[in-house]
Design a protein around this nucleic acid. Sequence first.
DNA 1: GTTAGCATGTAAGGAGTTACATGATTTT
DNA 2: AAAATCATGTAACTCCTTACATGCTAAC
Lengths: 207, 207
Amino acid sequence: MAGKKGAGVLELAVLGLLHESPMHGYELRKRLNTLLGMFRAFSYGSLYPCLKQLLAKGLIVEDRPEEPTVPLALQSRRSKIVYKLTAEGKERLQELLTEAGPASWEDEGFGVHFAFFSHTRADVRLRILEGRRSRLEERLESVRGALARTRERVDSYTLELQNHGLESVEREVRWLNELIGRERAEQEQARSSISNMTQDQPREDDR
Amino acid sequence: MAGKKGAGVLELAVLGLLHESPMHGYELRKRLNTLLGMFRAFSYGSLYPCLKQLLAKGLIVEDRPEEPTVPLALQSRRSKIVYKLTAEGKERLQELLTEAGPASWEDEGFGVHFAFFSHTRADVRLRILEGRRSRLEERLESVRGALARTRERVDSYTLELQNHGLESVEREVRWLNELIGRERAEQEQARSSISNMTQDQPREDDR
DNA sequence: GTTAGCATGTAAGGAGTTACATGATTTT
DNA sequence: AAAATCATGTAACTCCTTACATGCTAAC
């Protein structure tokens, strides 16, 4: 029940990007919109308040060029503020990347979580991918069902839209299947190389 | 500058569905989530306030079963409230369906506008489809550009995500191309059958 | 020297969600 | 008679947007 609420997509995205390298706000936004550009876009009006809030929580620190040791009147020089993660920030990022729940597989969150999968534990990755897949399958089933149950409505544009929607989601499911397959194969490989180390090693003792 | 603000997707969707046939809230939500289920979902917490607001604006009226002519104490019988469009509601719907602007081709609005295309003028349909297409093409260009300009970052998951995003959008562009082609062909046909009526008719007089 | 893009912020508010609260009807 | 589902509603809240306000810096 500590002060751990309201994450939002932005928090994760910012922490994730800052983990890769320190950056200032403006650049952060650009990277953000390249990273997630196909899915969503953020404005400065949400980014800066978010940074402020992360700062207040001690998850990031700002690196202003030189806090004027000589506090001259010309202080107005507004320059870049480079943000970087603190130790708590890194911890928080890990925490966010480790929870495999709705937040990580629903529409809003999935993309960001996926983008930082290389910092996510293999088992968590798999659970998120499977979570998203079953979420999408539920959606397919529910819409297909409702569609089948409905006679009478045959508006061609509505139908066209629903078909396109179904196909898009089916396509994403196929993509997920492929990814899940790869993840499983990697886990298999990892497991077998571990058993090579724990089971085959004794044999080496034998010779 | 009249009281014409904050439309939101819901308003259009509700007006559109009620135009097809009167309905009560619960059913409305279900139809809504079948219609747009692949793209978004609405909760009662937004639907009922929206209905209330449309009622206040006089765009819909409620049809309660029987306003008890006999106001008995057993009035607690809470029953279905069927909503239907008023004349103003139909006008407003037409108005919303006729504006071909960002609201009609951005992510949030496009689906709903498209769903009711059969009530939309052919020229407006075309402009919306083209608007969406160029919006998506902008997005593709900007992300592709940023991607090409960036060396150094080759996180495989990030890349996988961006590729999947690009392909999804490319796919939607192809879909739009097809739809635009069809729309144009239909317009062409319509135009030529008009000239059949104004140019060929005189020939009939000739024989 | 002026436009365009870099850079940082704030205030007001919109659109929708979650969680809750209640009751009616149908199915098992 | 219990459980599921139909049905309506509200209050508090969240996340994000728009529009504004400011100033620096590079290019033309």
